[in-house]
Amino acid sequence: MISLTVNGAQHELDVAPEMPLLWVLRDELGLTGPKFGCGVAQCGCCTVHVGNQAVRSCSVPVGSVAGQRITTIEALGSPDALHPLQQAWIDEQVPQCGYCQPGQLMAISGLLHKNPHPTSDDLAAAISNICRCGTYDRIRTAVARATSSAANQS
């Protein structure tokens, strides 16, 4: 049995320790926010947080994160209290098809833990998530909006 804390809820799971975290979340726990895009940690659609660290869950064996605090897009914010990035994504109308956006939001919110005010270059260096709809320009604008308004509030 593997013990996993996901979005604050504890689960005891009878799964192989080498099973990727993504498929445990999606197929065992029914959390479909993290998406499958490549299976080889290339596209970032599956990004979740382990602690405050953004990881590509398609390539993280569930056994390696047993006992750690996992957060998925479902718990990044709530409809009543959106994460500043989620609000900025709405204000800047970022998503098109939307499939990659949970991963984009988890990757960038993970970056903000380390670097609360990333420059455009910081963002380009740190975020390699793929968006085939090509929302990159709006992502940059939305991140700037979120990080500057967070700065204003603090």
């Binding site: 959390l31 479909t32 926010g33 993290p34 998406k35 499958f36 998925t72 897009i73 479902e74 990044l76 914010g77 709530s78 409809p79 959106l82 989620q86 994504w89 709405i90 109308q93 970022v94 998503p95 939307g98 499939y99 956006q101 949970p102 939001l105």
Partner: peptide, 13 residues
């Protein structure tokens, strides 16, 4: 947009 930034939008998968 809201559904797509909160992970609740349902795709085929």
């Amino acid at each position: 947009t809201l559904a797509k930034v909160t992970g609740s939008a349902k795709f085929g998968i």
